[in-house]
Every structure is written in structure tokens, then in C-alpha cells.
Design a protein around this nucleic acid. Structure first.
Length: 531
RNA sequence: GGCGGCAUACCCAAGUGGUUAAGGGAGCGGUCUGCAAAACCGCGAUUCGGCGGUUCAAAUCCGCCUGCCGCCUCCA
């Protein structure tokens, strides 16, 4: 039985959709005025995972996530860069979609743009004006927050106290300080649309309300977003929609916590924004997802390079399970009996344990622990010396399939297997032969040759060599210059050492890791690799 | 000032009344190994910010204190 923490009630509740078996779900998407930061990415991954789990649980889910393509910040940027606001919005929409794709976020069923829903917004605003919930003042249309009796119910705020706390601005046209803009009169040169109140553009809160109604209906099951949206954004959405429709707007409000940098929120004013595309340049998307999901979605999550690196190492170990099992399955058959009881039991328990974790308000850290335990069971079998019988191979294959299913819901399983060039394969076999004749010097040379080509060998107990591709690592020289000068084993592969490949040969250097974030060129010069 | 959240080992992080306090990283010891790496096995909080209280029983409930953070203004 699925339970979710509902911001509206502040409690963990049993989840029952309005229509049995079907879920209407809306999540506030990005405002496309810049590259998205990792906080946006975390939110997207959290709700993507929630959506995938709901589908796995047997619900049919209609998932809508908007793109806010008209907004003060977009207009400001357009003016600053002397471009049309559409151009700014399009550029960052494309960048956003690209990052989502890399992160393995399944595209929403509908991804509406605010500017495509202007008529629906006008319809809503008109209704609110007609029913006395909104008024025209100074050319703007404002929502009368005092007209909505339960204003503040989501954020737990008291309207009177709110009003007292807000200092009254001069020339304010609002009846109450808590009133908010539904429709803004256009200033000269700003993008605008025709409306009953003259040329103008929508306020921020109205767009989500309009898109929810347009694509999902008056009452929906789940509405998600970051904690910062609780007030005023979601509070205002409730006020608008419920005043208009006289129906409950959202049954379950889900809010994810912030990414923190050194214990503080990430914000423009603090200047501590991490762009997702920069994180993706250094870490695999699966590692980023593992990192995001390693804390509960409602909690804050501290982001720091060393923490990401430890997530990276953890994920590699986990992911190596697939490679190890594949090698065992594809290897020769054996006749000896392997110890498989634990694995059999593990397979039988996996689904129940995973569901138990996820049913508890999408407890992904617990779910990850379940998968890591299971992966260890698989590795225990694959690390046994015996060759597997065909029956043991079947069981291993079954275990891997299960791990892929549940790992897939969390999005931490790499989709495609790395391809090894035949040349590298041949060199590996040649090295095997050299080893067999105790020609170790030549064998090591062959190994270096393979490493220099960007691949690593790993000998197993069965005497065969597994081969893994490296990825080039980028040593930060300064803020935006990178120096390509070595290789490190990519995520998913079993070796964390860095190797430096130069004309002087291949160096296995642990210090390289320590120096990743320091001035690498100085270090390379000290070691004589650079002039 | 109002509202809300957090404090668990060296680091990240689950656990919210009752078996040995998950999992990951780092560390240490061992097995394996031509070397190296990987893998596997084992070890690691008598204790959950502090002080009281409730209870047969609390990291988990209540009170107070301390520290940190978020929202109340754009923000995932």
C-alpha cells in the first residue's frame, strides 16, 4: 500500500487516486531563461522516478510538466542581449530538453508551453473577475486574496499575519498586500497578448492553473515541485482554481527539498549555482541520478564535489555487477555445483523489499540499499571460482534481469554496453598467450599498449581478462580551461586509479585524484610531463 | 516576528516505540594474484546534538535548551 507525504495535510497518507487506477500528475517545470542547475535536475529526476514507480505499481499515469517561456527574467535577458524573447526561450528550452534526455528523464505525456495557453488563462481570469475574486487596478488584474476563505491552507500561513508582515509599498494598487497579479499590462516594447483588459501578459501563477485545467482537468491527484513553490506559487494556484471551479484542486501535494551547497541553498544571490551540464561533463548521468536518489526527496541534499566522487565510486561497484555476471554467463559451462541458495532467496525477496521501500513515500535511499544488497549477492556468485552450470547461468540471468528492472525504475542502470574494438580484443588474447608462456615483460608491454589505447584489463580468477574502456579525464586548469592529458576508468568499471599516458610511458598515479581540483598543470609540470 | 524542517560513525545517508541502529564512500585486516587492479570475506556507532519526562521498553513520543537551514520577495 503506497503512502505519500502530503504537504496539504502535513501527514503521510495512504495514496488513493480520484479515479481508481488512474493518476493525473502535474509538476512545475523550468523557466527557460538560463541553463538549468542541478536543483532543477534533482526535482526532475525525483518526479521522474516517482512517475516510473507509479507506472510500475500498475497505475496509468498522465504526466504533465510545463515549460514557462514567458516571464520577467526571460524578458530581461532578451533586452540585455537584444534578442527576441522567443529566441531566449527556445535556446534554453532546447538546452533543457537535452539535459533531461541525458539524465534519462522520460518525456512527460504533455509538455505545454505557457504561451500556448494564453486563451485558457484569459478564460480563468475572466471567470475570477466575474465572480468577484479578482479586480482590475492600474491596468493590471489582481487576485483578491481576502476573497478566498481558506487562503494559506497549503503553506500553513495566516492571512492576517501575512498582511501584517508585509510592508506596504508606495503607489501600490493592491487592495491587500497579499494580492497577486493575474494579468500584467504590457510596458512599451514588451511581448504582449490581446485581452479584455488590453494588451498584456500573464502573471506567473495563472499559467500552471490554466495548463493543469487544460490538460488534466479541474481536480488532479498529484501536483509536485520544489519546497520553495509552496508559498506563494502553489498557494496562489489553489486560490485561483478553487475559486473558479469550486472543486478541490489537488489531492496530494508533493514537494522536494533543496540541493544545498555547503549547507546553504543554491541561489543566484549567493553565486553558488551549479549547472547541470557542468555536472554531466564530469559525471555519468546514472551517477547523478544515484546521487540525487541517495537522499529522500523531501530532504535537503548537500552537493559537493567529494560527495559526488564517492557516489561515483559507489555506483561503479554496483554497476560492475552486470559486467561480472555477463562474463560468467558468456563463459564456458561447468559441472560443479555452485552455492546458489542465497541468490535464489534473494531473487524471490527482491520485489517485495523494493516495493516496501518505495511504497513508503518513495524511500529511494532504502530502495537503493535493497538493490545494493542484491547486487552483492550476484557478485558473490560471480566471484566463485567454479564455472557455472547451465542452470546456474539461467539463475544469474534471471537475477540480472530483475536488477535491471528495479534499477531501471531508479534510472541507475546504464542502457548500452560499452563496445570493445576487435583490435583491443586481439591484443588481450595475445597478452594471455604471453602470460601462459611466462613472458611477463612482453605481457605487461601489451597491457600498457591496451591502456594507452584507452582500455583497461582486469584479470579474474578464471584467468581471462575483462576489458573496459577508459574515458578521458579533464584536468581543471582554471575555471573554464581544461587540459586533456590522461585517462581514468569511467563509471561502471572496476578501477578507480588514474593513469597518465605520455610519451614517457604510462604512469599509475593516485596523486592524480588528489590533484583533480587543484592546478593540474602545475602538478604536471612538477612531474616533468609539461614544459 | 510568524510558519516549517533538520541534528544518526571520518564523510554521505536510511531507520519515527520493542529482533544484532540499513546501504554507500573512505579506512583497517584477510583470501585470491607473475605484478597490478578488480572481486570476495571479515572488522568498524553499547549508541543516535544536550538535559529532563512518559513507558515494562525511545534514535523513535512529550517538554526545554543548543546549533544549522528553508519559506514569508524571483527561485526546483
Amino acid at each position: 500500500m503506497l503512502k505519500v507525504t502530503n504537504t496539504l495535510t502535513g501527514k503521510k497518507e495512504t495514496f488513493e487516486p480520484l479515479t481508481s487506477g488512474h493518476i493525473q500528475m502535474y509538476v512545475c517545470g523550468p523557466t527557460v531563461y538560463d541553463d538549468i542547475h542541478i536543483g532543477n535536475a534533482r526535482s526532475a529526476v525525483n518526479f521522474d522516478t516517482i512517475r516510473k514507480y507509479l507506472i510500475y505499481s500498475g497505475f496509468s499515469v498522465k504526466y504533465v510538466m510545463n515549460i514557462t517561456d514567458i516571464d520577467d527574467k526571460i524578458i530581461k535577458k532578451a533586452i540585455d542581449e537584444k534578442k527576441d524573447f522567443h529566441e531566449i526561450a527556445d535556446t534554453y528550452t532546447q538546452a533543457y530538453l537535452e539535459v533531461m534526455k541525458k539524465l534519462g528523464v522520460q518525456p512527460p505525456d504533455v509538455q505545454p508551453k505557457a504561451t500556448d495557453s494564453i486563451p485558457e488563462m484569459i478564460e480563468l481570469i475572466t471567470g475570477l473577475v466575474d465572480s468577484g475574486h479578482a479586480y482590475v487596478s492600474g491596468g493590471d488584474v489582481l487576485y483578491d486574496s481576502k476573497s478566498f476563505k481558506t487562503y494559506g491552507k497549503l503553506s500553513g500561513k495566516n492571512l492576517e499575519e501575512l498582511i501584517e508582515g508585509i510592508r506596504v509599498e508606495k503607489n501600490d494598487t493592491k487592495k491587500n498586500p497579499t494580492d497577486f497579479v493575474l494579468w500584467k499590462t504590457a510596458k512599451p516594447g514588451e511581448p504582449s497578448w490581446d485581452s479584455p483588459w488590453g494588451k498584456g501578459r500573464p502573471g506567473w501563477h495563472i499559467e500552471c492553473s490554466a495548463m493543469v485545467r487544460k490538460h488534466l482537468g479541474d481536480s488532479i491527484d498529484i501536483h509536485g515541485g520544489g519546497v520553495d513553490l509552496i508559498f506563494p506559487h502553489h498557494e496562489n494556484e489553489i486560490a485561483q482554481c478553487e475559486a473558479f471551479t469550486q472543486k478541490p484542486y489537488v489531492k496530494y501535494w508533493l514537494h522536494n527539498g533543496f540541493i544545498e551547497i555547503s549547507g546553504q541553498k543554491m541561489s543566484k544571490s549567493l553565486g553558488n549555482i551549479w549547472k547541470t551540464k557542468d555536472a554531466l561533463a564530469d559525471f555519468r548521468p546514472e551517477v547523478l541520478r544515484y546521487f540525487f536518489l541517495s537522499a529522500h526527496y523531501r530532504s535537503g541534499l548537500n552537493y559537493d564535489r567529494p560527495i559526488l566522487e564517492s557516489a561515483d565510486r559507489g555506483w561503479k561497484d554496483f554497476h560492475q555487477t552486470f559486467k561480472m555476471a555477463d562474463d560468467k554467463i558468456e563463459g564456458p559451462d561447468g559441472v560443479e555445483q555452485m552455492d546458489l541458495l542465497e541468490l535464489r532467496l534473494g531473487i524471490d525477496d527482491l520485489e517485495e523489499k523494493f516495493k516496501e521501500a518505495m511504497d513508503d513515500d518513495f524511500n529511494t535511499p532504502k530502495a537503493l540499499a535493497v538493490l545494493f544488497d542484491f547486487a552483492r549477492l550476484i557478485r558473490q556468485v560471480t566471484s566463485q571460482r567454479e564455472r557455472p552450470t547451465p542452470g546456474a547461468k539461467d539463475l544469474l540471468g534471471e537475477a540480472i534481469e530483475r536488477l535491471k528492472i528495479f534499477g531501471g525504475i531508479l534510472g541507475i542502470v546504464q542502457k548500452e554496453k560499452p563496445v570493445i574494438p576487435t583490435k583491443i580484443d586481439e591484443w588481450s588474447k595475445e597478452r594471455e598467450d604471453l602470460k601462459k608462456t611466462n613472458n611477463y615483460e612482453a605481457a605487461d608491454q601489451k597491457r600498457n599498449q591496451i591502456i594507452a589505447s584507452g582500455y583497461l584489463l582486469a584479470d579474474s580468477k578464471m584467468g581471462t581478462s575483462a576489458i573496459f574502456p577508459y574515458e578521458q579525464i579533464r584536468f581543471k586548469q582554471d575555471e573554464d580551461k581544461y587540459l586533456n592529458y590522461g585517462w581514468v576508468i569511467p563509471s561502471g568499471l572496476p578501477n578507480q586509479n588514474s593513469y597518465l599516458f605520455t610519451e614517457n610511458g604510462i604512469q599509475n598515479i593516485d596523486e592524480m585524484k588528489i590533484n583533480l581540483d587543484t592546478n593540474a598543470s602545475t602538478w604536471l609540470k612538477d612531474k616533468g610531463f609539461l614544459d
